[in-house]
């Protein structure tokens, strides 16, 4: 049989194994940091952490039960109120009861228009990018047409400038690990 395994092939496959494992591990850790977004009305993550006294008044005021205490060990917002879009996204109330409840200035009305982050699509796991017909994120986005819309191949595309980072798309995404997640704004 001329199907002998060459040294080169052996090492290539061995390397591929490590590469796959690594990318798998990194994706898992990535989804860890993106699991949470901060509540509306935050000036910057640093100031939020500094000003939040962990009274959790805002948590009790959220009508959608979206705010929760971050219990992930080692997370930069550990102990502070956060939103986990996959569990319950922010519905962007017109009167922002969470901000109104904050007495320390961690959440401020003057920053209520500021986005929580930006939705990012992973083309590797998005059903639409894989050639199937799925419209969940676009159909559920309250700003469909401006924040997210279909391209000519019926794939969703995020318009970063208009995206509020509410995470409704993440919540509704019908893949096992959400193919659309919220990336926190830099700075």
């Amino acid at each position: 049989m001329d199907d002998r395994i060459s040294r080169k092939d052996f090492f290539r496959e061995a390397l591929n194994f490590f590469r796959d494992q690594l990318s798998h591990a990194s994706r898992q850790s990535k989804s860890g940091t993106e699991r949470f977004v901060l509540p509306p009305g935050v000036e910057s993550p640093e100031l939020y952490l500094e000003k939040c006294n962990q009274c959790y008044d805002c948590v009790g005021k959220c009508p959608h039960y979206a705010l929760q205490v971050c219990r992930q060990t080692g997370h930069f917002a550990e102990g502070c109120p956060v939103i986990e879009p996959r569990r319950q996204p922010c519905y962007w109330c017109s009167d922002f009861p969470c901000i109104a409840a904050c007495s320390t200035g961690a959440l401020q009305m003057s920053f209520k228009e500021r986005s929580l982050g930006t939705a990012v699509i992973d083309p590797e796991s998005c059903l639409a990018y894989q050639g199937n017909c799925c419209q969940a994120c676009v159909n559920n986005c309250p700003l469909a047409g401006t924040a997210i819309q279909f391209d000519r191949q019926l794939r969703p595309v995020v318009q970063a400038a208009a995206c509020t980072g509410c995470g409704i798309c993440t919540f509704y995404c019908p893949t096992e690990v959400p193919a659309i997640t919220i990336e926190l704004n830099k700075g």
Binding site: D3, I5, D9, F10, F11, R12, E13, A14, N16, F17, F18
Partner: peptide, 13 residues
């Protein structure tokens, strides 16, 4: 052949 390669290489790795 490819499957065998993959399996053995991965096991070794």
């Amino acid at each position: 052949r490819r499957e065998f390669l993959k399996a053995s290489a991965a096991a070794a790795a």
